[in-house]
Structure formats: structure tokens, C-alpha cells
């Protein structure tokens, strides 16, 4: 196919590029600022990447270092500070622990339940499915207050349990997996029974492997939601930095620090946003499918 010049196409591109500039603006600001020295940030100079001229670090000077000792490269300084001013590694690790635990537990709970709802006849099955559908209507964020009180009564606030427990059951996960399992032919399950598998073996050896695409999509959905979640950690984690998730850590960075810390703060923001953005760029189709899963209803 050859593309001839067309006014219509050009116009569409112009509009879309303008949109893209606005969409990308904060990403540009974030990365560009994270590369600049405080002076460049204050004056709005330095172009995209900053001049990367050496500058004297303020904290170093106040601690009595000589000017020569305190000279640093802006980009290095910003990113080093992101890790030294706050336990960034710890935050990232917490983020990984929390998101992976949530996903693992959600799978462990949702897959057997979804299999039972899709393929087994048991007393109360219709009522059970109605319960799942009803729970789909309740946003967990909305009931954060009573959940927080219940956890507080159990003495569980400020713990990994508080970060993870409320998310262990995902009505959406159950619903999604059930819809997928409905499409698995009954014959396959009967064949597995004839081959000597019990119901548990059928779930883990037959249903789960065939459901990998759906499960992967759900994994992306779940991990993105919980890596980025700020509201819930903000409520149940108070003060104990060793339990902070990445957004909490970044928020603390912002709360504590004054104007000339924009460089390191933007470096932190970049560090927190980068894992998912890179993963997204590498596997766009899967991510878009996963995130828009809720559209499958």
C-alpha cells in the first residue's frame, strides 16, 4: 500500500500530536527535572537534560565540607539522594512483597472458587454467584473506614497483614476466572476425572494451565492497581517507614522537604513509575488487555 498525502490524515496527526504533547508533559517534567541541578530548576534553564555542570551540594557544605569536596554531578546527586535520603530500596522491596502476596493470595482464593462456580453443581451455587456479583458493586476503597477499624481492633495496623489482607479476595477475580472457566469444555474435566485426578488436581493441573492468558491479564490488572495504590497504605501505615510502599515513600519525600529538593523528588518519582512503564512498553498488548479487563463484563 502506498500512502498519498491527505489533508484529513495530516489534520488527524496534528491533533493527536498536540494531545500527545499534553499527555507526555508531566513525564517530560519529571525526567528532565530529575536530571537538573537546583539552580537550573529554580531558574527554569538547562534545557531537556540540564547542563550537568558540577555544583556544590548544600547539605555537604553545612556539614563543613570544603567546596571542592562537595562538588557533585546533578544527575548523580539527584538519584543518589533518592536512595540515601529515604530507604528507597526498602520501599521498592515492600512494593514487590505486597503486590506479589496480594496477587498470589487472590489467585489461591479466586481460582478454586471460580472453578466451583463454573463447573461443579453444589447446593447454594446460584446464591454464591449472586454474592460475588453483589460484591463486585462494593469498591474496597469506599469501606476503608470500617476495614481500618476492624484491623485496628485486631491490632493489625502497621503490618504487612494490614496492607495485604483486605485485598485477598477479589470479587472481580472470581467473576473473571469463572467466565473463563465456563468456556472450558466439560469433556476435558470428565477426561481428567477418568484419568484419575481429584478436584484439586483438576484445578491446578488442568484448569489453571488452560487459563494462563486470563490469569496473566488478571495479574497485570492486580499488580498495577496495588503497586500504584496510595489510599489504602496511607490509612493503615502510620509512621513506620520500614513498611512504606513506594507511593507512601514518595509522599513522605514531598512532605518533608523544601523547594530545592525537587531534583531528588523527581528522581524518586521516576524510580517509582519506571518499573511499570518499562514493563508496559515491553508488553503493551498484554498490559492494555489486562488493565481494560474490567471492560469484559
Amino acid at each position: 500500500m502506498t500512502y498519498r498525502f491527505s489533508t484529513r490524515q495530516t489534520l488527524a496527526h496534528v491533533v493527536l500530536i498536540l494531545g500527545a504533547v499534553i499527555v507526555l508533559l508531566p513525564f517530560y517534567v519529571m525526567i528532565s527535572t530529575s536530571l537538573k541541578s537546583p539552580a537550573e530548576i529554580a531558574t527554569g534553564t538547562g534545557g531537556v537534560f540540564g547542563s550537568q555542570a558540577l555544583f556544590a551540594d548544600q547539605t555537604c557544605l553545612t556539614l563543613g565540607g570544603s567546596k571542592a569536596d562537595c562538588l557533585v554531578r546533578p544527575v548523580l546527586d539527584n538519584y543518589t539522594k533518592a536512595f540515601t535520603e529515604a530507604p528507597m530500596w526498602r520501599y521498592l522491596l515492600n512494593g514487590v512483597i505486597v503486590t506479589l502476596s496480594i496477587f498470589a493470595l487472590q489467585t489461591l482464593v479466586a481460582v478454586p472458587a471460580a472453578y466451583a462456580l463454573a463447573k461443579l453443581r453444589f447446593w447454594g451455587r446460584d446464591a454464591a454467584f449472586a454474592l460475588v456479583l453483589f460484591c463486585l458493586l462494593i469498591p474496597v476503597h469506599a469501606i476503608a473506614l470500617p476495614l481500618y477499624l476492624m484491623l485496628a481492633k485486631l491490632g493489625l495496623t502497621n503490618s504487612y497483614a494490614a496492607l495485604i489482607l483486605p485485598w485477598t479476595v477479589s470479587a472481580f477475580g472470581i467473576f473473571l476466572m469463572r467466565q473463563f472457566f465456563m468456556t472450558v469444555p466439560d469433556d476435558l474435566i470428565d477426561a481428567a476425572r477418568m484419568d484419575g485426578m481429584g478436584e484439586f488436581a483438576i484445578i491446578w493441573r488442568v484448569m489453571l494451565p488452560t487459563a494462563i492468558p486470563a490469569l496473566l491479564a488478571f495479574a497485570i490488572f492486580s499488580v498495577v492497581a496495588h503497586w500504584n495504590d496510595y489510599f489504602w497504605p496511607r490509612i493503615v501505615i502510620t509512621g513506620d517507614r520500614s513498611l512504606f510502599t513506594p507511593p507512601l515513600g514518595l509522599r513522605e519525600f514531598k512532605g518533608d522537604l523544601g523547594g530545592d529538593f525537587y531534583g531528588p523528588m523527581m528522581a524518586s518519582a521516576t524510580i517509582i513509575a519506571v518499573p511499570l512503564v518499562v514493563a508496559f512498553l515491553l508488553a503493551q498488548r498484554r498490559f492494555i488487555d489486562g488493565i481494560t479487563l474490567s471492560g469484559m463484563k
Binding site: 494531545g19 508531566p26 513525564f27 517534567v29 517509582i272 513509575a273 511499570l276 508496559f280
Partner: peptide
């Protein structure tokens, strides 16, 4: 364009809010 327009959905809203505040 699809990729670019989808980026904000992926990025942590808190982080981007802080960036917007600075912008």
C-alpha cells in the same frame, strides 16, 4: 498514539500528581 495515551493509566497517580504540582 495508543501507547502514549495509555501511559498515564499505568503510571502511579500519586507520583504524577506530585509532578503535576511541580509543573
Amino acid at each position: 498514539y495508543k501507547t502514549i495515551y495509555f501511559l498515564p493509566v499505568m503510571a502511579s497517580l500519586l507520583a504524577m500528581a506530585i509532578v503535576w504540582e511541580f509543573a
